[in-house]
Amino acid sequence: MLEILLDATVRAGTPILFATLGAIINERAGIINLGIEGLMLIGALAGFAATHSSGSLLVGVSAAFVAAFAAGSIHAFITVQLRGNQIVSGLALTMFGIGITALFGKQLVGLTIDGFERVAVPGLSQLPVVGKAIFNQNLLIYLSFFLVAAIWLFFYRTRWGLAVRTLGENPAAADTCGVPVNLYRFLAVTSGSGLVGIGGAYLSLASTPMWIENMSAGRGWIAVALVIFAGWSSPKALLGAYLFGGITAMQLRFQALGTTVSAHILQMLPYFFTIIVLVISTLRLQKGASQQPESLGLPYDREDRK
């Protein structure tokens, strides 16, 4: 029972994890991206379409990354180059993503592909309790484990990561140290968006190997909230994403057991939980445990006279 629940937790949490990691990269560079929901859909559709026409999952995942990267570059151009309003641009990106995937996804509805299969790690997958949940999963899930560690190392052990973190805190400081502010910010936004796209592709290539309109169903917004919960750190993002995965897995389990509670109420639980998490993390922020990048949401203009 516990084994099954843990396994379902990881599987339900992974798309949110990818999206949260992508959003963290955006926000660490000081750019708020509210287009996560739209980017997930774009990634989901591009991944599904490419896999369907090529027959290769690798091509599908790459296509998801590239499509979301391209869509993210719209946001990057508006917020970094033009120094536009990040909130408005991000919301527009979400609208754009929902609209364009509905339009181009029409002819793909009902088609099927062979999605990602489980690949057991020899030996380790036989571990009691956690073995199945961690070491008998599909390749995308292994990729997400790798990314959590890699992103942490990137931010805290490389010069590039230090530069990106400085951009989010005080872009002027980075500028006077010779860091190309706009280039790095642009790359952070686009590559972060690409990761979000892979999160979307997980939905259409692994969770349910088909395209359903608006299939991200608010997971992008959960990711936006999780960034705050995770304190802009990738290991904590893993924790947060699995927390939501766990709630989703449990409510599915409840439904399967046939409780008398309405399915609608159960399906609402993860979103309800998002609100609670936001309240708690915001209170924590106000108490001064702030990890929030100080220049988050502020455009940088070198010649601005303060």
Binding site: R165, T166, E169, N170, A172, A173, D175, S290, E294
Partner: peptide, 9 residues
């Protein structure tokens, strides 16, 4: 004059 430092780092 306004230091170019990151207070949180």
């Amino acid at each position: 004059q306004h230091f170019m430092l990151v207070p949180a780092h």
